[in-house]
Design a protein around this nucleic acid. Structure first.
Lengths: 137, 137
DNA sequence: CTCTAAGTGTTATATTATTACATACGTAAT
DNA sequence: ATTACGTATGTAATAATATAACACTTAGAG
């Protein structure tokens, strides 16, 4: 590798707190709450809510995770770092959350936004559903 | 007025607490926070958070108001009681919130939902924007 | 090396929301 | 009219979520 480019190294490397919070969310795959994260990472050295919230804020800013507002929870981004726009389904019965990757839907929303001349900087879409397993039972 | 129909009277009349909370939101037009509502209605006899939250819950259920999840606030519905589906713009700079009444947009979302076979019971769409006055300044 | 922006650790506190329990009210059936 | 039942009320306590303030440290650019 060339060593001539020194820029943007920082943007690639997370700090320790950011790393362990991200790893936890990655391994979980589910939405987690801040205080659950805190409890889970006590053994890794996290002691205060603020440490968690600071890491979460940064990760949201980087687009590596999303906040699901209606349940005060955070989930790993499975769309390769989409910082600005998010869309989820949330099961009304079991609470299970999925990030919507359906390109038709997100493209469609983008089109609608354009057509209606809404000057959107970002959006958060929360669709409440009855998930497959809950529908059966 | 005829007195022959006794049904569904209850569904039309709100209780006192529900009434005063709804009136406040109606007169304000802006999103208000639960504890602000509590403070504002102390003189009307509201003493505890629970009284406010119970009224708010009921009004949301009736579709008379909406909760804007990302700012923990409640706003009067200006779409004639749409209990299930909501769409807002939120200014990232000044925080101003508007309920989107644009029929094209909401119809479009409905179509997208159908096209993608998402079984949605309701949805909440929060679009972050830079509002006109903030864009100028 | 030094400066600076960003991150850390910690304590305290603010904000948002719910649990639990006893009481009252409204309406429909007896 | 009385009972029964679902809904609402009032109140105190507490849980859950999030931020402020401050002193200190670290990493990277110049």
């Amino acid at each position: 590798m060339s060593s001539t480019h020194t820029h943007s190294k920082k943007s690639q490397s997370l700090t320790k707190n950011q790393r362990i919070v991200l790893d936890l969310l990655q391994n979980s795959g589910e939405p987690l709450k801040a205080y659950f994260i805190l409890d889970s990472l006590k053994k890794e050295g996290l002691n205060s809510p603020l440490q968690v919230y600071r890491a979460l804020d940064k990760l949201v800013e980087l687009g590596k995770i999303h906040k699901i507002e209606s349940i005060n929870s955070f989930i790993i981004c499975n769309n390769s770092n989409c910082a600005s726009n998010t869309a989820f389904t949330i099961c009304e019965r079991c609470g299970k959350v999925k990030e919507i990757k359906n390109k038709n839907l997100t493209d469609g929303v983008s089109d609608l936004v354009k057509d209606n001349q809404l000057e959107i900087t970002r959006y958060n879409l929360e669709f409440y559903v009855l998930c497959k397993s809950c529908k059966i039972n």
